[in-house]
């Protein structure tokens, strides 16, 4: 399937906050309560439409444990968007956001759009981090913010799509140089004038088949 743009996303955050579940909910529209933990990186993909244009999201889902940081740092390169996820029922995962943010800013393009996500909003009774705290952190650091539930799917579509809208807006405003792939954006095959061979759309498709 052809697309106007391809955006690379990276999902980051502490272990166990629900990164893989968010990805699965977004690409396959299902929730898997038990699944293998992620070692290294896994990939997902989905097509979305913004402003009448087809946009392919290629999403990198990363391991969250601290020892993996030195490896996951190499994954930031060329990401247009990042979902920085914490778990609203575990304050630790919120407290670590500053470190994640430093890492992200240091290893990515300065234009990368970062969406802060407080996940597990369905577990209201066990809430440990107020919504206002998430909002305040996002405001202070210039991030977009949303609370989501990978379990009920609440706000999951919105989180991925609003990030794409922000990136798309930046392209319209000329902030992103779309000819520089280091920004995490590629022009789709039918739009590409420079190197059509390297950005084939095969293997794409609307729903994920486990990979991008």
């Amino acid at each position: 399937m052809s697309y106007a743009y391809l955006f690379k996303y990276i999902i980051i955050g502490d272990t166990g906050v629900g990164k893989s579940c968010l990805l699965l909910q977004f690409t396959d529209k299902r929730f898997q309560p038990v699944h293998d933990l992620t070692i290294g990186v896994e990939f997902g993909a989905r097509m979305i439409t913004i402003d009448g244009k087809q946009i392919k999201l290629q999403i990198w889902d990363t391991a969250g444990q601290e020892s993996f940081r030195s490896i996951t740092r190499s994954y930031y390169r060329g990401a247009a968007g990042a979902l920085l996820v914490y778990d609203i029922t575990r304050r630790d995962t919120f407290n670590h956001l500053t470190t994640w943010l430093e890492d992200a800013r240091q290893h990515s393009s300065s234009n990368m759009v970062i969406m802060l996500i407080g996940n597990k909003s369905d577990l209201e009774a066990r809430r440990d981090v107020k919504k206002e705290e998430g909002e305040a952190f996002a405001r202070e650091h210039g991030l977009i913010f949303m609370e989501t539930s990978a379990k009920t799917a609440a706000n999951v579509e919105e989180a991925f799509i609003n990030t794409a809208k922000e990136i798309y807006q930046k392209i319209q405003d000329g902030v992103f140089d779309i000819n520089n792939e280091a920004n995490g954006i590629k022009i789709g095959p039918q739009h590409s004038l420079t190197n059509p061979g390297m950005s084939s759309s095969s293997g794409g498709g609307n729903q994920s088949s486990g990979c991008c």
Partner: peptide, 12 residues
């Protein structure tokens, strides 16, 4: 292969 996803899939 002609693209990143294709190569990643082959490895998988």
């Amino acid at each position: 292969c002609r693209s990143f996803p294709e190569v990643v899939n082959i490895f998988k």
